[in-house]
Nucleic acid binder design. Structure first.
Length: 274
DNA sequence: AGGCAGGCTTTTA
DNA sequence: TAAAAGCCTGCC
């Protein structure tokens, strides 16, 4: 089917934004998107039109939510005052097209546990190996195979060697502990969707191997808490240089996480030499 | 109490 | 060889 999207929507920018690790580039402006047990092939047709290999029903019940299509990112960008904050304004303009996906919280937790001390290609590799190790094989609409993302019960049942073969290293224990906590209900991710930020972060950092950075990523990318603000080495550097007198978090609530994404992508694309 | 150093598996550039 | 969307432990 063909979908017209009038708001910000740039597949390449989203794919490279570092929030999702199960997108595969299949061609110019085209991606295979894996989400829970589903697979979608989506491609930019030029202008504001995109082709999706799913039904209208699946778009409305799954992908509209996943791509956060009911949010107005143009309006979120318009809240930035160019005179008061030229840096953020430039970052948002350059990185326009990024959206905050509504990813599965469990999947997001595992991905960001794996992310620590790894670069993005290595994260993608480990996540793919984990899905191949214990996800369910399926055939997508183009006839190619993919693996669903394994649930906490499946991951918890995996033996240590199988986890280690996914290239997880010392993170094996973290992933296993998280699987166990979610499986037993000790951590209820669904309940955190509507929880306030302090209790969300403290519940997540209670897990072995989850610090404030990973917890913030799960909050923003997995629970869609749009005000969560992951503070990593890149953002720390950006804030130190561009905001020596402090960053105005209060002025940008409740969308701090969106602006964080613009600044993160901006810092990285500039570092890559653009 | 809160901050800092050192270590950790593996992959990537 | 160093760096990579960090975190844990031990020490002060």
């Amino acid at each position: 089917m063909i979908l017209t999207i009038n708001d910000d929507f740039d597949l390449e920018k989203i794919a490279d934004s570092g929030q999702c690790f199960r997108w595969e580039r299949t061609g110019e402006g085209a991606y295979r998107v894996l989400h829970q047990d589903r697979c979608l092939r989506i491609a930019a047709l030029g202008g504001r039109r995109f082709s999706l290999d799913c039904s209208e029903t699946e778009l409305e019940t799954v992908w509209r939510d996943y791509f956060d299509l009911d949010e107005d990112y143009g309006q979120i960008r318009a809240r930035i005052d160019p005179a008061a904050d030229p840096f953020l304004c430039a970052a948002a303009e350059r990185e326009r097209g990024i959206r905050i996906l509504r990813q599965d919280p469990w999947e997001t937790l595992v991905c960001f546990l794996i992310s620590q001390n790894k670069n993005i290609p290595a994260i993608r590799r480990s996540v793919a190996l984990l899905a191949e190790a214990c996800g369910t094989p399926r055939t997508d609409r183009a006839g190619a195979e993919y693996h669903t993302f394994p649930g906490p019960e499946t991951v918890a049942a995996l033996d240590g060697d199988a986890l280690r073969r996914c290239g997880l290293g010392y993170r094996c224990a973290y992933v296993h502990a998280a699987a166990e906590a979610v499986r037993t209900g000790q951590l209820d991710l669904e309940r955190l969707r509507d929880a306030d930020e302090p209790s969300t972060l403290s519940a997540l950092t209670g897990l072995y191997g989850v610090g404030i950075k990973v917890a913030s990523c799960v909050s923003l990318f997995g629970l869609h808490h749009m005000d969560a603000f992951p503070m990593d080495v890149w953002i720390r550097r950006v804030l130190a240089v561009a905001y020596p007198n402090g960053y105005p978090f209060d002025a940008y609530a409740p969308y701090n996480g969106v602006y964080q994404q613009y600044m993160f992508a901006y810092a990285r694309t500039r570092a890559k030499g653009e």
